[in-house]
């Protein structure tokens, strides 16, 4: 009976999550391009050999990692600050909380389009302010040095509210009498932050970190609309590269290989994270 109730959901889950991975495993051993008339032709490990020597794949992997680490780091810091602010009680807090959630709720493509205009050179508002201050306007989206920072900015803007909300939930779980006891023992408020808040918030930081890292490593929507991976592939991520291989270069076998490669890298980083977390836990009795 119980299995019968779970079966429809589990079947759909297997179809949506497991089937694609099996399909990719098979597809990565095929050549399926315009040259094969878009028919799959078995090629053994050729796609995998190509992947290992594909500079663009590894460059994209490095870019994806850089983007994920920097933006998730920023989101955690900013999110903690916002959570601490929203944790205090003041009038209008509820409204501020929901308004600050707006960036998270908006479709990524909608706000990516918005950021393109805001970062526009020279007519966007940021460059408008720079010019009125007598500074040169910056080609945010046309410079290989600046474009990835623009992506980080837009992603941080969009997902910080999510992190802040998680951390706020964590803050609300900490009993206030801990702070009262700490104050009675002569502790200063900022010491309380370090000695009580941060240690007790750790599980929530960890959850936010895992969720956000996984999402950031798979970033696609934002890059696809904001920069299209450019200029000169400087903001291209693995997900976008896989997408381009399939939809633009019509090289399905290799696209599947890129996705599997990305999956392997994800698993590896998840493993590293677990190990690091255990070291961290082990370091503190």
């Amino acid at each position: 009976m119980s299995l019968l109730l779970m079966a429809p959901a589990l079947l759909l889950l297997l179809a949506v999550f497991l089937w694609p991975m099996l399909d990719y495993a098979w597809l990565s051993l095929q050549a399926q391009t315009v040259f094969t008339g878009l028919k799959p032709v078995p090629v053994g490990l050729a796609n995998w050999e190509r992947l290992l020597g594909d500079g663009r794949f590894w460059q994209d992997a490095a870019q994806t990692l850089r983007f994920a680490v920097v933006s998730v780091g920023l989101e955690l810091l900013l999110g903690l600050a916002i959570a601490l602010l929203l944790h205090q009680s003041w009038r209008g807090r509820g409204l501020v909380r929901s308004l600050s959630l707006l960036p998270w709720a908006l479709p990524t493509t909608v706000m990516a389009l918005g950021w393109r205009w805001i970062l526009n050179d020279p007519n966007g508002p940021i460059n408008g302010v720079m010019q009125s201050l007598g500074l040169p306007s910056l080609p945010f989206l046309a410079s290989t040095q600046l474009a990835w920072l623009a992506v980080v900015l837009a992603d941080t803007w969009k997902t910080t509210p999510f992190v802040a909300l998680l951390l706020l939930a964590g803050l609300q779980m900490i009993p206030t009498d801990l702070y009262e006891a700490f104050a009675l023992e002569g502790g200063r408020p900022w010491q309380g932050l370090r000695r009580i808040t941060l240690p007790l918030l750790r599980p929530y930081v960890l959850i936010a970190l895992i969720f956000r890292l996984a999402q950031a490593l798979g970033v696609f929507d934002l890059v696809a609309v904001l920069t299209g991976g450019g200029p000169a592939s400087s903001t291209e991520t693995l997900a976008l590269y896989a997408y381009l291989n399939a939809m633009r270069f019509l090289d399905f076998g290799y696209s599947a290989t890129v996705m599997l490669g990305m999956f392997v890298l994800l698993l590896a980083s998840a493993l590293l994270l677990v190990l690091a977390q255990q070291r961290w836990r082990g370091a503190r009795p």
Binding site: A15, V16, W19, D23, Y24, F211, Q215, Y243, A246
Partner: peptide, 16 residues
């Protein structure tokens, strides 16, 4: 599955 970056699945889903 909840944490999995689902963008990885698009190609196989498209084929289906």
């Amino acid at each position: 599955a909840a944490v999995f970056p689902y963008v990885l699945l698009f190609l196989a889903l498209l084929q289906v």
